[in-house]
Design a protein around this nucleic acid. Structure first.
Lengths: 226, 226
DNA sequence: CCAGATGATGTGTGATCACAATTGCCGGTC
DNA sequence: GACCGGCAATTGTGATCACACATCATCTGG
């Protein structure tokens, strides 16, 4: 994977420290599947790719390791992107199937018309990407759709759990979606979700989100098995 | 809190890197409530308390921040132990009430006679501590009891979620228990759990664990509210 | 006697150097 | 041509230094 392209993920925010910026950049890159599962990376390579010294990268990476978005190979002590086992995928699916519906339910209660509008927009851009076969655009829009909801729940701990879970799911999501193509991508239950938020119906939101995730993860389990 | 006493938490394991040892030491100290909520700490202080340079402490602390066991004050950018809000406590309670019963259910299916024996022993030492009014002993034994179960589930992701949640619950658990004294400490549902593991009954294990946690967390919510 | 300025101390952050271990490459041997 | 030994480059880790900023104490001026 082109490490040189990493610098484009660095957004200028002078108030934030370097390692925070580096963390954000790497987190986004991982979530969007820039890195392949099993790919090995190195502090110095990342550092030069991001035009910073290895120091802030070390701290950002340490955090990503804590979140299991990266790992140190036990033998080498060398850095790499985790390759996903079917067992771990199942655990991720289970965890996501609990956390994210929960967030959806909380958000539904607190839902505002503004949120509903935003979600409609995000869903539109998602549909456009879907029809154009744009995998990257689909992933970005889908990510945005979900996390606008989660953010609206104002439940920091759950939000962060969801963020971490996506961080771990990201690297091979890309692989799976590239293999499948957008044709087979699920239509999701986004309309159902939007309706639930408009009606502030927590139960429907929870159920719709649960099904949305279950379908998506089933797709990945199938793809990984092959 | 006496930072000098920190070195006793450092267990000699030459194969592990310094920052791992430092992390383990700080994690255990946090789980056992050595640090008070809201207490501010510093890299150099911790480093000298652990007889290492600030470098490995930085990485260990970075990881603990990622796990929300420590935090950087937004104003100062200074390090401190998070003080717990009632809202966050509720989220912790909800998360624990899902993850840990789940782990108990998985562990029950895989339970061995050895596990049951170990749990019986742990419960005995817990009862002894309880009768002696030994808060610290109670907390250690309770921790050991729960995590022997979770370990037996062999579900890394869930195990780590539980570990992180305890890390966050630790600092003020001590405060609450000190305030309450061992007299009011819940008898727990440990016997029920042991029975479920002996019978490899997942549903009973899940239910018993759920009640165990619910009661414990209710106690803390009450104490925090006061 | 007290308030506000000023210095000293402590803080997190980042860069750089040193080091042991591992990896990868290149040339030589069988 | 395949295999193996040895050297160079790369890796993560830890220590140390420099810096900007916040905090706290002290001192000065009113």
């Amino acid at each position: 994977m082109a490490v040189e392209a990493l610098s484009s993920y660095l957004l200028k925010a002078d108030d934030a420290s370097f390692h925070d910026q580096v963390y954000d950049a790497l987190a986004e890159a991982l979530t969007e599947g820039v890195f392949a599962p099993g790919q090995s990376v190195s502090l110095r390579t990342l550092a030069s790719g991001l035009n910073v010294s290895p120091m802030p990268v070390r701290e950002a990476v340490r955090r990503l390791i804590a979140e299991k978005a990266l790992e140190l190979q036990p033998s080498n002590k060398r850095l790499r992107v985790p390759s996903l086992s079917e067992d771990r995928l199942h655990q991720l699916a289970k965890a996501r199937s609990w956390v994210e519906p929960e967030l959806a339910a909380i958000a539904a209660i607190k839902a505002t018309p503004e949120l509903v509008d935003t979600l409609k927009e995000e869903d539109d851009t998602l549909m456009v990407a879907l029809s154009k076969g744009d995998v990257e655009g689909y992933m970005k829009a889908n990510h945005a759709f979900h996390f606008h909801i989660y953010k609206a729940a104002h439940a920091d701990l759950f939000y962060d759990m969801a963020r971490t879970l996506w961080l771990q799911t990201g690297p091979f999501m890309r692989v799976v979606f590239n293999k499948l193509g957008t044709v087979q991508l699920p239509r999701d239950h986004h309309q159902e979700l939007i309706g639930a938020f408009a009606a502030r119906d927590a139960d429907t939101a929870r159920k719709a989100m649960a099904e949305d995730i279950a379908e998506g993860m089933d797709l990945m389990v199938e793809a990984v098995r092959a």
